[in-house]
Design a protein around this nucleic acid. Structure first.
Lengths: 227, 227
DNA sequence: TTGCAATTCAAACGTTTGTTTGATATATTT
DNA sequence: AAATATATCAAACAAACGTTTGAATTGCAA
């Protein structure tokens, strides 16, 4: 984006922190990658830790700016909003133009948040979670059970996060070429279909005409199993 | 488990590596936490890197041993096997007796595998993925589409992984006390229900008697949306 | 006990780390 | 042009790092 020394540092730092972690990344290497002197991180950011927090913020802003959540006109059906939510979220995570470190460094923070990250949760994650929960509340016909809304919400976002958080595993299992062939569009479409079926808004996956027989039979088994 | 100096080192190293990463953890601190001299890591493991790889292996073995995958008798219905698969997997991930670092260090590896990790994928992850895919293939009535089986499999395991991989986020959003109240049993039950509905084997979530009307109406909207 | 191996220890090694310094170069203002 | 602020640089700093050393200690067999 910007080509000032400050942003060259942020880019180099992001790549380094994402692949090697905070402790593993060396200020010397970051500066060299940015084509600047060793002292520049001190000049522009004070110290290594403030460079890191600025890098995290920078990564969040970049990936959220390109795919903003649409502000739906009043009366937009909840299921449509849910679909667009999923598409937007997957695109944010999987945009091939995103440099890998932009989401990778956020994933690192999600697993083990630093102090600079709790602020990010409040300002960035919480609003998204509230949006999703409002959609699900509208879809739900049994109001009141807030825990279930969270569980359903987790089931949805977890599917989106998977392809970014466990990319190496997925690539190793499917084969790298087949896995990378899964475009954001394909992934989002699948998650929408899976979720729609789970919520009773679409056709179940992995089934055909015989599904009705299987369904009742298996539900009986499932109930028996739980006791 | 064992109380030999070697295993005291592995336990201390696991906790340190999980919270601070490979570069961030200091050999000095690990040895001190284990109540041993600085030179002991060199005496027992050679160097820091071999201590790390041994720690990862140690963590895998401990969490897999307690909850082995059941070997189903021939003829066990696929949906029952899928349920038990989910329950076992969630229990492995969420067992409260598991020291946090045991899964945390594996999650670190999943996001950015080291060379020692590819071996772990082949020996540990691949077999589980094959098991799951075999179950899904049996549940599927449209044979051939292997990509879809992977996608469905990802949708299932991603839900299980979420609660461990994004625990801090979930806790921050729901509130720590409500989130920790989600026992492995509750989580597994929800994932089973969500998945069952998605695959057409159970009752859709978030719906009641009116669901039939909503379903057809929303499907029409969804189809229109995609064109 | 004696002898031998396994283990533990304090101390120091050479690197690499993040950070600071003071001088030099560049740009902006007076 | 002179003066002042901004930016860059090579060099050095103390601290922390992983690793090594050689002696001291322990456990066990002869």
């Amino acid at each position: 984006m910007d080509d000032t020394p400050k942003y060259r540092l942020l880019d180099a730092a992001g790549a380094a922190f994402a692949t090697q972690g905070f402790a593993g990344a060396a200020v010397r290497d970051i500066c060299q990658a940015a084509g600047l002197n060793i002292a520049s991180v001190n000049y522009y950011f004070g110290d290594k830790e403030r460079l890191y927090t600025e890098t995290v913020k920078y990564a969040c802003e970049k990936s959220a700016a390109k795919y903003p959540m649409p502000d739906w006109p009043a009366g937009t059906p909840a299921w449509n909003r849910l679909q667009e939510f999923i598409v937007t979220f997957v695109n944010r995570l999987m945009d091939p133009e995103n440099k890998p470190w932009q989401t990778q460094i956020i994933m690192r923070e999600m697993a083990q948040p630093t102090s600079a990250c709790l602020e990010w949760i409040r300002e960035y994650v919480k609003p998204m979670a509230d949006t999703l929960r409002a959609i699900l509340a509208e879809l739900s016909h049994k109001p009141g059970d807030d825990d279930q809304l969270y569980l359903v919400g987790f089931s949805i976002v977890s599917q989106c996060l998977f392809y970014r958080q466990n990319r190496p595993i997925g690539a190793q299992l499917m084969g790298i070429e087949r896995f990378t062939a899964l475009t954001p569009d394909i992934i989002a479409r699948h998650i929408c279909a899976f979720t729609a079926a789970a919520l009773g808004l679409g056709t179940p996956l992995l089934s055909d005409i015989r599904s009705k027989v299987i369904r009742t039979k298996s539900r009986a088994i499932a109930v028996k199993e739980k006791r």
